[in-house]
Simulated scan of single mutants.
Amino acid sequence: MATKNLTEKSRATAVEAIAKSGEFEYGVNYSISAGKLLRLQCTVNRVKKVDEREDRIYSGVMTLENTGNQSMSFPADVEPAPHVAYLQTIIAEVKAEIQA
């Protein structure tokens, strides 16, 4: 039998979710371990219907690290304030779900 070099320190659960608000769709990916939120990433897309199909227009990305650091990146023509506010709603919902 081969020598084992790795010792597992933790195991995380990855979750993929979608939230919609108005014409925006928020693709949310987050991971949890031992009842704590480790990382959350939220990709923002504007969704427009064009001839019975949906066009997704990239509108930004926001992340939260377990250290409490948040980072955001938006194209120059996108107003970030409503998305940042919605991110706080998403984070609160995820944390409430973890504690349930």
Rank of each mutant, 00 (worst) to 15 (best):
Y26V: 07
I57K: 03
L38A: 15
A81K: 07
P80N: 10
K4C: 13
A19S: 14
Q88M: 11
K95C: 05
P75I: 08
S10I: 11
Q99G: 05
D51V: 07
D77V: 10
I32D: 04
A14T: 13
Q70M: 13
R46V: 03
A85H: 07
N69G: 12
T67N: 05
C42V: 15
V61P: 04
V47Q: 00
I91Q: 05
I98G: 05
S33G: 14
Q70G: 13
I32W: 00
E8Q: 12
S21N: 14
A85E: 13
A96M: 01
S33N: 09
D77C: 10
V78D: 02
G35W: 02
G68N: 02
A96D: 08
A81W: 00
I98N: 03
V15L: 09
K4Y: 08
N29L: 10
G60Q: 00
M1R: 09
Q99P: 00
K36D: 12
K49D: 15
Q88I: 04
A76N: 09
S31Y: 00
Y86A: 13
S59R: 00
T43G: 06
N45G: 09
N29R: 08
E65V: 01
S10W: 06
R56K: 14
M72V: 11
L38H: 06
R11I: 13
K36E: 13
A85Q: 11
N29Q: 11
L6K: 10
V28Q: 01
E79M: 13
V78G: 03
A19D: 10
M62A: 06
M1T: 13
G22D: 01
Q88V: 02
N45Q: 11
M1H: 11
T43V: 11
F74R: 00
M72D: 11
V44R: 01
I57Y: 04
P82E: 05
T89I: 13
M62R: 01
